[in-house]
Simulated assay, not measured.
Amino acid sequence: MTAPTALGIDEARTRLNELTVIDVRTPGEFAGGHLPGALNVPLDRIRRALPDIRHAAARGDVLVVCASGARSENACRILAENGVATATLSGGTAAWAAGGNELRRPEGTPRATWSMERQVRFTAGTVVLLGLLLGLLVHPAFQILSAAIAGGLVFSALTDTCGMAAMLARLPHNRTRAADLGATLEVLRSR
């Protein structure tokens, strides 16, 4: 299967009012800042939202976004396999914000959260460092922690998935508010 169509930041900004924007990040990441008008359908719930996304796509173009573009490409592939044509935002919300564009936050969001990519880097680095230190100071077998993380990172790169991100997404700070999928699906049905 070919890569999904990618919209550049300038084209997306110009067409923002005519696009249905679906953000596939976790609710915590979405709360930290998203494109104006974006609807939150986390990647792990994209199949459940399929009929409503199909409905929105029949009425106009759908743009799928995430932090950097990897998860949105996965979502676009899932949607394409089910007959829904979508595009992804080149560089994701990180590129959108770096281009000086506005990110919105839901009302009542107490603070910005770290991006999932940043959380994964922090967690992986901490476990590798811990494995090395414990391996030197306590017992060499602790270096297995570092090797396991290295193996997981290689697997993640080869499969374009991330088990650590999936686990971190379930932590309370990443679930600052549950994605109200029902309300999001209602909005998709009305488009």
Score class of each variant (00 low, 15 high):
residue 4 P to T: 11
residue 7 L to G: 04
residue 7 L to Q: 04
residue 13 R to M: 11
residue 14 T to I: 13
residue 15 R to E: 00
residue 16 L to T: 02
residue 17 N to H: 13
residue 19 L to T: 06
residue 20 T to M: 08
residue 23 D to Y: 03
residue 29 E to I: 11
residue 30 F to P: 05
residue 30 F to W: 08
residue 33 G to V: 07
residue 36 P to R: 09
residue 39 L to D: 09
residue 39 L to E: 06
residue 43 L to E: 07
residue 44 D to C: 11
residue 45 R to D: 15
residue 45 R to M: 14
residue 52 D to H: 08
residue 52 D to I: 06
residue 53 I to V: 13
residue 55 H to P: 05
residue 56 A to D: 01
residue 57 A to T: 11
residue 58 A to P: 02
residue 59 R to M: 09
residue 61 D to I: 04
residue 65 V to F: 04
residue 66 C to P: 00
residue 70 A to Q: 14
residue 73 E to C: 10
residue 74 N to T: 14
residue 75 A to F: 07
residue 75 A to N: 11
residue 76 C to Q: 13
residue 76 C to A: 15
residue 76 C to K: 11
residue 77 R to A: 06
residue 79 L to R: 06
residue 81 E to T: 13
residue 83 G to K: 09
residue 83 G to S: 12
residue 83 G to C: 12
residue 84 V to C: 04
residue 85 A to N: 07
residue 86 T to V: 08
residue 87 A to C: 13
residue 88 T to M: 10
residue 90 S to V: 11
residue 91 G to Q: 00
residue 91 G to A: 04
residue 92 G to A: 02
residue 93 T to I: 07
residue 95 A to H: 12
residue 98 A to L: 10
residue 99 G to S: 08
residue 100 G to A: 07
residue 109 T to C: 12
residue 111 R to N: 14
residue 113 T to V: 15
residue 114 W to M: 14
residue 115 S to M: 00
residue 118 R to M: 00
residue 119 Q to W: 05
residue 119 Q to A: 14
residue 122 F to P: 10
residue 122 F to I: 15
residue 122 F to C: 13
residue 125 G to M: 01
residue 126 T to I: 15
residue 128 V to E: 02
residue 133 L to R: 05
residue 133 L to H: 05
residue 137 L to D: 06
residue 138 V to A: 14
residue 141 A to T: 10
residue 144 I to G: 04
residue 144 I to V: 11
residue 145 L to R: 11
residue 147 A to Q: 01
residue 149 I to F: 05
residue 155 F to S: 08
residue 156 S to I: 07
residue 157 A to L: 03
residue 157 A to C: 02
residue 159 T to K: 01
residue 159 T to H: 06
residue 160 D to N: 15
residue 162 C to F: 09
residue 168 L to E: 04
residue 170 R to G: 09
residue 170 R to A: 12
residue 170 R to F: 02
residue 172 P to W: 01
residue 173 H to A: 13
residue 174 N to W: 01
residue 178 A to I: 00
residue 179 A to D: 14
residue 181 L to A: 05
residue 184 T to G: 01
residue 185 L to M: 09
residue 186 E to K: 08
residue 187 V to N: 07
residue 190 S to D: 09
residue 190 S to A: 14
